[in-house]
């Protein structure tokens, strides 16, 4: 029997449309990335996408879910792209594959598939990779040794030796190491002025990639695909702690802008902490989630042993989501100001 139910009208929206808009919002960042480091990242995106779709299809088949309906929803592609963009651009191809497989098979499908995963799959992939392969995950190509595309391909596919010249640290990591080595005798200003790693705001070139992510994120916000709560609370959390420590000791702590335009801040703010599935759902909950993730990310990246803290911060907050949601339910119509 054909049971039709109201409402009979529907807005022209779908999961696929949401995901495609997220992918579109990543394009400016990808463009800036390519401009900065050459087309290597495109190769990684292709590898990640192909692997994600294959893994998704295999899992859907295994779990007996309709392939046609789910494979096209775009969610696997979003995970894949975020992994490709979060991993070092010249990481070996299998590292990306390991990350994507872990994200799609374990973090997503074994938890129930689309909409059911408590943890952000891309961040799970990042955490697994950085814990298991810390050296590979810390090798970032310096922006000025612009190797040719062929060399990049050789590196990605393991056809050339991974010589040190091709790998450095991220600007964020470099600063931390320099400060540690200086043991309080060098100031942030001196390090930034002395090395060519840094530009106007943060890492030279990288600051533009971050700005492009910001642009894409603002577009998502303007399109109402994401709400402003989590991203701005995240940025606020980082800025507040960075600002406080910078005001207290500007020689040993980089300014807030440096932190906002370094590492995974912008990508995390607009594409990770905004993940609806693993994030909070109430407005107040989103603020708490974003702010706490920002604070944790800052603390881990400045005081912890990892080059950046976004992944761990987000995963830790993912655990807290049910609790935060439970205690931040807004009062309903007619019940405001009542217990």
């Amino acid at each position: 029997m054909n049971f039709s139910t109201p409402p009979y009208l529907a807005q022209n929206v779908s999961v696929q449309r949401v995901m495609l808009q997220v992918l579109a919002a990543l394009l400016p960042g990808i463009a800036a990335y390519v401009w900065l480091l050459g087309p290597a990242v495109l190769v990684q995106l292709v590898v990640a996408s192909a692997c994600a779709l294959a893994a998704e299809a295999a899992m859907l088949r295994l779990l007996g879910k309709p392939l046609a309906l789910y494979l096209g929803d775009g969610s696997a592609l979003v995970t894949a792209w975020l992994i490709a963009l979060a991993f070092p651009p010249l990481a070996p191809w299998w590292l990306i594959v390991v990350g994507v497989l872990f994200a799609i098979v374990i973090a997503k499908h074994l938890y129930g598939g689309l909409g059911q995963n408590p943890f952000n799959p891309a961040m799970i992939a990042f955490a697994v990779a950085i814990v298991s392969f810390p050296a590979l995950m810390s090798q970032w190509p310096p922006v000025d040794t612009n190797a040719g595309f062929v060399d990049q391909l050789a590196l990605i596919f393991g056809l050339a030796p991974r010589i040190d010249a091709m790998s450095g640290a991220t600007p964020l990591d470099a600063l931390k190491t320099a400060l540690k080595l200086g043991e309080g005798s060098v100031s942030v200003a001196k390090i930034v002025a002395d090395t060519s790693t840094y530009g106007q705001l943060a890492g030279r070139g990288w600051e533009w990639v971050a700005a492009a992510y910001l642009l894409g994120g603002l577009w998502l916000w303007q399109r109402k695909v994401i709400s402003a709560h989590a991203p701005f609370a995240f940025i606020g959390g980082i800025a507040l702690f960075a600002g406080a420590l910078w005001l207290w000791n500007p020689a040993q702590f980089a300014n807030p802008l440096f932190h906002l335009f370094s590492g995974g801040t912008m990508l995390g703010a607009f594409f990770i902490v905004t993940d609806p599935v693993s994030g909070c759902t109430t407005p107040k909950g989103k603020l708490i989630f974003g702010f706490a993730a920002g604070v944790l990310a800052y603390l881990i990246r400045v005081f912890g042993g990892y080059p950046d803290g976004v992944a761990f911060a987000v995963l830790l907050l993912n655990i807290c989501v049910p609790l935060i949601d439970l205690y931040t339910q807004p009062p309903i119509f007619g019940m405001k100001g009542k217990p």
């Binding site: 929206v13 999961v15 789910y70 969610s75 759902t281 119509f333």
Partner: peptide, 18 residues
């Protein structure tokens, strides 16, 4: 499709439910 917890429904609910 499965719910992705996007919260669009909560935003449009005139009784401010979830």
């Amino acid at each position: 499709m499965p719910c992705i917890r996007c919260g669009a429904c909560a935003q449009v609910c005139p009784h401010e439910l979830a």
